[in-house]
């Protein structure tokens, strides 16, 4: 599976890149959605700059599975109803893996984006 990991925390990218690569996934990392070059590798579009929220929408429009990593989900542990696959900080690796499987059952392209 090709996975784009976008997060502003380098340590997060370091750890989860290593873990996901161990699973055999092809990982592209970005500190934020403005790394259009990296983004374009996933969504096959020429996009110079894009914020994480726009990236998520573009991915969904192209039917690319996304997992949104959030800090404060909302009222009672639920999130905005338009979000399908969301994982709350702090989480364990197996929880993220499960979310990725849930969001990307086709195994084609998937993105994990920190929406902080």
């Amino acid at each position: 599976m090709k996975i784009l990991l976008a997060d502003q925390h380098r340590d997060m990218l370091l750890m989860y890149r290593a873990l996901l690569e161990q699973r055999g996934d092809e990982i592209v990392t970005a500190f934020d959605g403005t790394h259009g070059e990296l983004v374009s590798k996933i969504i096959n579009a020429d996009i110079p700059r894009v914020q994480s929220s726009q990236l998520l929408k573009m991915a969904r429009d192209r039917r690319i599975g996304t997992v949104k990593m959030v800090n404060a989900p909302g009222v009672s542990g639920t999130t905005d109803n338009t979000e399908q696959h969301v994982i709350l900080f702090p989480f364990f690796p197996e929880e993220l893996f499960a979310k990725i499987e849930e969001a990307c059952p086709s195994g084609k392209a998937c993105g994990g984006v920190d929406d902080e």
Partner: peptide, 20 residues
């Protein structure tokens, strides 16, 4: 609560990585 979340997630991942 806010400032602990990401470091904890990183530690979770790091522990998993070391074990693997």
């Amino acid at each position: 609560e806010h400032n602990f979340k990401v470091p904890l997630t990183v530690l979770n991942a790091g522990t998993e990585l070391l074990e693997r």
